[in-house]
Design a protein around this nucleic acid. Structure first.
Lengths: 188, 188
DNA sequence: GCAGATAGTAGCGTTACCTAACTATATTGA
DNA sequence: TCAATATAGTTAGGTAACGCTACTATCTGC
């Protein structure tokens, strides 16, 4: 029952959650928090992941809720909806130009700016620590989430990239996108 | 427009917010996310801050919303409500024994455990970085939030602690509690 | 005192969120 | 090949979060 030296795990966890909320303080912009989250997700997810289920997983909510949020964004002209050619059950969501412009007004920018003012080394260190936490959490759930560049399924041969799971070639620029199927590399 | 080296501020911000949400993944326990947040707040706030407005500020929401969340917790036996002697307009909220026991099942514990598994030095570093971000955000808003031990209003004389703003003595144990009036020390 | 600020509540409408039920397509396997 | 099962997505219904406005009560400053 002795207090831990320095910061305890719970303090850290509270700090993290609190910061995540405070970032939106007094936002009130043109979209709700969930809608902003969806826009950010579809802006950064790769072509295998820009689906309703993908967002539901990322946002840790149900498909029903995700479906509702997506619908509101489609109706308001932020997302384009098309059927997947890979899977007849899936729909693919893509950002419209309007959505890309709107992302510039994302209330999260305030936090992003604050983070951008950190020393580059410190920022990288922070990101690394947060990702370590994320991977650890992801393990205990099904999901997890990260970019191909750090994914255990990525195969590289020379300058070519390939996803071993989907068995498809990846453009270099795609390796920085978020993927549903992300799994931390074991040796990482 | 060139990509920043390493992690950009926006990536970091997204990571942070995402982690804050993912921590609750599949929680679904006996309370909602807002209710857990309230319980945590009232467990950690000092006697000047255990009010509806205090929680509203901390949780970055309106007093109306905070009032509703608090009411639900009082009705369900998690919080005790009493009028403040210092200020006739205020009510003071205190956790019941049931609430303290319930906090053991806080879904945030999963993240807290993950954080607790980090190396102690790394954890302190992480907490420090997050607090730096928080202070920077707090500045641009009115609020801000932190513990007396790091507050600019704290005066210490020998082993005695005192809040210069409220002009009251503080018990040593109270200096680890959250305060509404927290202001980062200028020289920090 | 009186004006203006602040603490809290109440009511309204929108949205998030969950659950459960449902359709349609994929996958599995006997 | 065909039936069982799993998965993608939608819909409906209910609770609570959330912001807004309006309101009362108390406090603070002049």
């Amino acid at each position: 029952m002795a207090a831990e030296r320095g910061s305890s795990g719970s303090e850290l966890a509270e700090l993290l959650v609190h910061l995540g909320r405070a970032a939106y303080a007094g936002a009130g912009g043109e979209l709700t928090a969930a809608q902003w989250a969806a826009l950010r997700y579809f802006a950064r997810a790769n072509r295998f992941s820009r689906t309703v289920s993908g967002f539901a997983d990322y946002h840790a909510t149900t498909r029903g809720t995700a479906s509702q949020t997506v619908r509101s964004l489609v109706e308001r002209g932020y997302l384009l909806r098309s059927r997947s050619e890979r899977d007849g059950r899936s729909v693919v969501l893509d950002l419209t130009g309007r959505a890309r412009r709107t992302l510039g007004a994302d209330p999260l920018q305030r936090l992003a700016l604050a983070a951008g003012r950190l020393d580059a080394r410190r920022r990288d260190r922070l990101a690394e620590d947060l990702r370590a936490l994320q991977d650890q959490l992801g393990q205990s759930r099904g999901g997890g989430c990260g970019v191909c560049a750090r994914c255990g399924h990525l195969l590289r041969g020379g300058r070519e990239f390939r996803c071993g799971l989907m068995d498809e070639a990846l453009d270099a620029s795609e390796t920085g996108e978020i993927c549903l199927r992300y799994r931390p590399r074991p040796d990482d």
